[in-house]
């Protein structure tokens, strides 16, 4: 009786622990070999055959196709530089430098990877269409309400994700230091 109870208890705990850990790692996006610059994180190996089992399971579950290393690299940001979550009711300013790349794009998604509806039908910018100042610098206002210059609308959603993609770039699996990949700074400017 005691044996039966013990093994039943063990199996129950084991199943809860194992499945819980799997669910946790997949929803949190655990993957190894990440490259973090400021608020931006990329997983270069996820776009190659060296992808780890966690990233493999994570993309199989979400249904996305990762950017291949011969194509480019994707940096994800969920917070600003101070670690505050991206809230679509707040205004965030993105400015600074980008690593060497032939082209880059920045796109705003909801946490599930869908584009966000807005009145001007803008979901991001490419390196060609962004408005720059005389020194070639740029600033993007990520905000719920219209802004002059480069306005990226949030649609007022509770949480959003920014993805910065560099195409045809030397940044990749071998990149170690943040000097090689200076990513734009993200600062929160206030909430409505």
């Amino acid at each position: 009786m005691r044996l039966l109870f013990g093994s039943f208890f063990t199996l129950l705990i084991a199943a809860a622990l194992g499945l819980g850990a799997t669910w946790f790692t997949l929803t949190r996006g655990v993957a190894f070999g990440s490259l973090t610059v400021g608020a931006w994180t990329a997983w270069p190996k996820t776009g190659s055959v060296d992808i780890d089992p966690y990233a493999r399971a994570s993309i199989a579950r979400s249904g996305e196709l990762p950017t291949g290393v011969g194509d480019g690299i994707s940096f994800y940001a969920h917070t600003d530089d101070a670690g505050q979550n991206f809230d679509g009711r707040c205004t965030f300013a993105i400015s600074g430098m980008t690593p060497a790349a032939r082209y880059w794009t920045v796109t705003l998604y909801d946490p599930e990877g869908r584009l966000v509806a807005n009145t001007i039908d803008r979901h991001g910018f490419t390196s060609d269409e962004i408005v720059r100042d005389n020194d070639g610098r740029f600033s993007i206002a990520v905000a719920p309400l219209a802004r002059p210059g480069n306005w990226l609308p949030t649609g007022g959603i509770e949480q959003f994700v920014l993805v910065w993609r560099l195409y045809d770039t030397p940044i990749g699996v071998a990149t170690r230091t943040t000097k090689e990949g200076p990513m734009p700074a993200i600062v929160r400017k206030g909430c409505s």
Binding site: G63, T105, T107, E112, G113, R114, L115, H123, G124, V163
Partner: peptide, 8 residues
């Protein structure tokens, strides 16, 4: 698919 680049 999620996270498709709309510029492409």
């Amino acid at each position: 698919m999620p996270f498709m680049d709309p510029a492409f």
